[in-house]
């Protein structure tokens, strides 16, 4: 007979789930919980399935402790997966086939939630075909950069924070910084922010011009889908993160009706003092608590 500790260990052994994403082989890791709820962890940026500083691996362990299963994977061209790297717009297109494969492999799971960090969160919101198959979304610092909110956030958040940082003054006093160049950059952002003060379109929505380097008009589609999504959403925003501030600023500038539609099913929580990936252990604990509370509130049955 197997020892109880051995049984516990056996139970917690993660399962490997071979996936095919657009014909590229990728390995998923399914960590089994005790309930019918699972979270599909969608990596952001160029991250591997374990996540930056193993964030997704740690989150999977935490979810398992809450009886919730999870699946993490590599997008093609990243980590162990075959294929060429692609951007989050493409990732959004691939998510339905990944979720379908997960549903087929784990039929005991009745409710699939999606977790995404940064442009992983944006990818989730971008696919209209995917969203009806999900029971809820956990969005951590979604990527919402547009020229307008980027300039405003730089002025209100980045430069203001820099003025209060010891590093800035140390650099300035030691002559290691270039104050004129910084001032020039600041004025450029300030001018952009002012120029875009009221650039609302015919619908009264902010005029969302993506910044340089982004050739996709993803923000209107993303906001539209978020607005239409009727199931619970947790929006977790790191206090010390430019991307999070841009998202907050974008939402704050939406017309009241659109804002209210999003707010109706979205719980917004701030992770105090945290950076983009909540790399500090105490901040990650905060994030875990926020997720746990939201899960209890919305999925306790």
């Amino acid at each position: 007979m197997t020892e109880p500790s051995q049984l516990a260990l056996e139970h917690s052994k993660p399962k490997l789930l071979p996936l095919s994403i657009a014909g590229n082989r990728s390995l998923g890791i399914f960590v089994e919980g005790q309930s019918d709820i699972a979270v599909l962890l969608v990596s952001g940026g160029a991250q591997v399935r374990a996540g930056s500083h193993r964030m997704q691996q740690q989150l999977a362990s935490y979810l398992q402790q809450q009886q919730i299963s999870s699946l993490r994977f590599d997008f093609p061209g990243y980590g162990d997966a075959e294929g060429q790297p692609a951007d989050f717009i493409q990732h959004a297109q691939w998510l339905p086939e990944i979720l379908t494969a997960a549903q087929q492999a784990q039929p005991q799971i009745r409710r699939w939630l999606l977790f995404g960090l940064c442009d992983g969160a944006s990818a989730i919101l971008l696919n209209q075909q995917l969203l009806p198959q999900t029971a809820g979304l956990i969005l951590l610092n979604p990527w919402c950069r547009a020229e307008q909110n980027h300039a405003k956030t730089m002025v209100r958040f980045y430069y203001w924070q820099r003025l209060w940082s010891a590093e800035f003054w140390q650099k300035l006093l030691s002559g290691r910084s270039q104050p004129l160049q910084s001032l020039q950059q600041f004025l450029q952002y300030w001018w952009q922010a002012r120029a875009n003060l009221n650039p609302k379109n015919a619908n009264g929505s902010p005029d969302l011009q993506p910044t340089q380097g982004s050739n996709q008009q993803f923000l209107p589609a993303m906001l539209h889908n978020w607005q239409q999504y009727a199931k619970p959403v947790l929006l977790a925003l790191s206090e010390n993160d430019l991307t999070a501030q841009e998202c907050a600023s974008l939402l704050a500038e939406l017309p009241a009706t659109q804002r209210q539609q999003i707010a109706r099913h979205t719980t917004t929580k701030t992770v105090a003092k945290a950076n983009h990936t909540c790399s500090d252990a105490t901040h990650f604990l905060q994030l875990q608590r926020v997720i746990k509370d939201w899960l209890l509130q919305n999925f306790s049955q």
Partner: peptide, 9 residues
């Protein structure tokens, strides 16, 4: 290790 993973693959 994360950043090298793709190259190993």
């Amino acid at each position: 290790a994360n950043r090298s993973r793709r190259l190993f693959s």
